[in-house]
Simulated scan of single mutants.
Amino acid sequence: MQKRLIALTRLWAFDQLSSHPAGIGQPPWDAHGVDDYLPAATTTGGGENTTEPLAE
C-alpha cells in the first residue's frame, strides 16, 4: 500500500511540473501524514512462532 501512495504522490508532483497539467489534486496524505492511509502494523508476540505444530 505504501508503494501505491508514493506512486500517486509522484504522479501529482509530476503533474505540477508538466507544461500541460491534468489538474491532479494534491493527495491528502502529503499534507496530513500517511499513517491514517496505511493499514495498521501487525505485531507478533515477541518473535515467537504462532503456527500450530504438525501432527507427530
Rank of each mutant, 00 (worst) to 15 (best):
F14T: 07
S19N: 08
W12D: 00
T51W: 06
G47C: 04
G45N: 03
E52L: 15
M1G: 08
P39R: 07
E48Q: 03
E56L: 10
T50A: 08
P21V: 04
R4I: 13
L17A: 15
D30R: 14
H20W: 06
A31M: 10
I24P: 00
A22H: 07
G45A: 05
A55G: 11
S18K: 02
L11W: 03
A55T: 15
L17Y: 10
P27K: 08
N49M: 07
D36C: 05
T42W: 02
A22N: 09
P39S: 07
R4A: 13
T51D: 10
E52A: 15
A41W: 04
G46T: 02
L5V: 00
N49H: 04
A31S: 13
Q16M: 12
R4C: 12
A22E: 11
G33I: 02
D36H: 12
S19A: 15
Q2A: 10
L11C: 08
L5N: 01
W12F: 10
P53H: 02
G45C: 04
H32K: 11
G25E: 15
W29Q: 03
A22M: 12
T42K: 07
A40Y: 05
T50S: 06
D35F: 11
M1P: 09
E56M: 09
D36T: 03
L8I: 02
D30G: 10
A41M: 07
A13N: 14
H32V: 13
A13M: 10
P53W: 00
A31V: 14
T51M: 14
G25N: 15
L54V: 13
Q26R: 15
A41P: 02
P53A: 13
W12T: 01
L54A: 14
G33N: 03
L5Y: 08
S19Y: 08
L11Q: 13
E48P: 01
T51F: 11
S19K: 06
A41L: 12
G45K: 01
V34A: 03
T44Q: 00
T9H: 12
V34Y: 03
R4V: 12
A55L: 12
A22Q: 11
T43C: 03
P21I: 03
W12I: 03
D35S: 15
D36E: 10
L8Y: 05
I6L: 10
G45E: 02
Y37K: 09
P53I: 15
A7D: 12
L11H: 08
A55V: 11
D36I: 00
A22S: 14
M1T: 09
N49Q: 06
T43K: 01
Q26K: 14
V34E: 05
F14L: 10
S19I: 13
Q2C: 09
D36K: 13
W29K: 02
K3G: 07
G45M: 07
W12P: 00
P21Y: 01
I24F: 00
D30H: 13
H20R: 09
N49G: 05
F14Y: 13
T9P: 00
R4P: 00
T51C: 11
L38E: 00
D15S: 05
A40C: 06
T9V: 00
L8T: 05
T50R: 05
H32N: 14
S18C: 12
E48K: 00
A55E: 15
P28W: 00
L17Q: 13
T43F: 02
T9M: 11
M1L: 11
T9F: 06
P39Q: 07
E56A: 14
P39M: 08
P28S: 07
D30T: 01
F14Q: 13
